[in-house]
Amino acid sequence: MGESITFWVLAVVSVTAALGLVFSRRAVYSALMLGVVMFSLAVLYAVQDAPFLAAVQIIVYTGAVMMLFLFVLMLVGVDSSDSLVETIRGQRFWAIVAGLAFAALLGLGIGNAVLSAPKGLATANQAGNVPSLAELIFTRHVFAFEVTSALLITAALGAMVLAHRERSEPKPTQKDLSRARFVRFGQLGRNPGPLPGPGTYARHNAIDMPALLPDGSVSPLSVNRVVARYEAAEGTLPPEVERILQEEAVSERTNGQTARPLGEEDGK
């Protein structure tokens, strides 16, 4: 009875979270939804007499793997949302049809199978779940276990090789950086000093408030661009900041100084 209550609650939660993972626009929400699915699966393992796997699931998946995902998301694409343009026409529709068909196929197969009552792990777990698993891993599956350690070392080395970048030019010193800043100041009139802080303490409690210049106008340099983009998407950006950012974008486009990364929108 207790098991079926747990199962139904977690089944609803995990399927909802899985749907959210697939259909949410922002990648960070997808990552959080994946965390929910993994956590509910861990509880389901615990319910099914697999306490070791439940612990490993939480430590490895919701701990390490999710951290890695979030880390790479922050590094790569927190503000890159999916384009809604279909490269192949009708791909989305047919993908969903294929998914439903596959689910129906699996469901039919499972429904057709004649299963006896589960034998349960009471005898197999007699010495405790972890000792029994350890006995199997270190006797019958010991070769696979050794190969696994080789695999993990290879993966760690591979990640280091892939992520490493050889520096092709000497690292710029502080002197070089300062010189470059003042060259920019002389040629383009860019401010050589640090950016002004936001008007957090002056007028408001939030980091999205722009700082005011001595004449009372808004300083566009003090607005964090990422924050401003989110706020513009949600329509909560203060109108004066929005106007200034738009003017800036227009002037940048006409000057041909776009810092847009390659292949983001102009690829297609």
Partner: peptide
């Protein structure tokens, strides 16, 4: 439940563009 989650994951692989 396992089949459902697997199918949802499969649809996600086919539908989404963001590699992560």
């Amino acid at each position: 439940l396992s089949a459902l989650l697997f199918s949802i994951g499969g649809v996600g692989v086919l539908v989404r563009r963001n590699a992560i």
